[in-house]
Design a protein around this nucleic acid. Sequence first.
DNA 1: ACTGCATGATTCACTAGATGAATAATTACA
DNA 2: TGTAATTATTCATCTAGTGAATCATGCAGT
Lengths: 176, 176
Amino acid sequence: MSDGSVSDGPQPGSPESDGSRGDQRRHPRIGFLLSQLGAHATELFADQTRGLGITPSEAGVIRIIGRSAGISQRALADTLGSVQSRVVALIDRLEGAGLVTRTRSSTDRRVQELRLTESGSSVLRSLRHAAEAQEAAIVDGLTSEQAAELFGLLSKLSSLRGLDAEVHVGYRDAPR
Amino acid sequence: MSDGSVSDGPQPGSPESDGSRGDQRRHPRIGFLLSQLGAHATELFADQTRGLGITPSEAGVIRIIGRSAGISQRALADTLGSVQSRVVALIDRLEGAGLVTRTRSSTDRRVQELRLTESGSSVLRSLRHAAEAQEAAIVDGLTSEQAAELFGLLSKLSSLRGLDAEVHVGYRDAPR
DNA sequence: ACTGCATGATTCACTAGATGAATAATTACA
DNA sequence: TGTAATTATTCATCTAGTGAATCATGCAGT
């Protein structure tokens, strides 16, 4: 992901995309900056998970299982905003890598209870450290006042958009 | 893209991803917010391009050709941070849709000169309008002072990261 | 002019991630 | 009991993207 992919999206209106030259851009292009910086943050995060031998998706799975031990694959799919068949493949890999276990529920033998193994928990700890390091890297160059201001504005935007921080990004629009 | 994809990345450290409950989160999680809002902006943009019958990647291609009529596929690939073979497929589609033309250069018959057709230009105009509307939607709910402040902070972050607004996001790391 | 190398476009085989439909096992319920 | 819903799983398929190989063309040096 760190190489030259065409990367769908991150350019909702590039700066001066037309022939009208000069730096008189009528609009702030906050959308463009958000897409660009968001993609950048996302790729930094991907670099870090790659160092741990997992993909960003798998990192998300590990985080969710970490805070909801025993969750079913169905519930995991809902939380991710994904579908069951995708979760099967995801867990297949994480189970094969020894990070997650499947155990049939004793009360409902249809469901697989998902839990982190010891090394799964270790990966989760590494993920948290990586996230903290990344946070520090991102605000590096801003004063703490600026960082606080930025956080406030982004939080406001996020709540205005109805993006609940607890729910996954790809989930807004409901898997039909 | 608007449905439940697992969407790699957009969660560089979710809020309170562990068992330690309570809302005492030590870090602002600006990285998380940036990923989330960036993904959101990207998806809004994708919704708009979909309405025009093109993908976000194709929209990027149209923008570039629009400001550099006669560009070669090779130069386009470099600008996109992609590879020639990918561009072939992209242009195949846009040419088939009647938005772009290929003409062999008279001075160097290896190169294909890319230009927008009339409807290609029309799509480009629609893209610009869509981008403006999206910009308005994004800052809706912020005062103009807040919007200006946010723009300043995001610009600063962007330049700190060395993200040149003219260069595509996926291009930082050079296609080896 | 000839040779050899570089370059632009194209094709092709392959991969990864994702999606929806079908199926089997199990549970819930009328 | 029997019928419907639910969980996990498999499978065929799709799309985007990648790198290698190929072909035609241009160009520099001899």
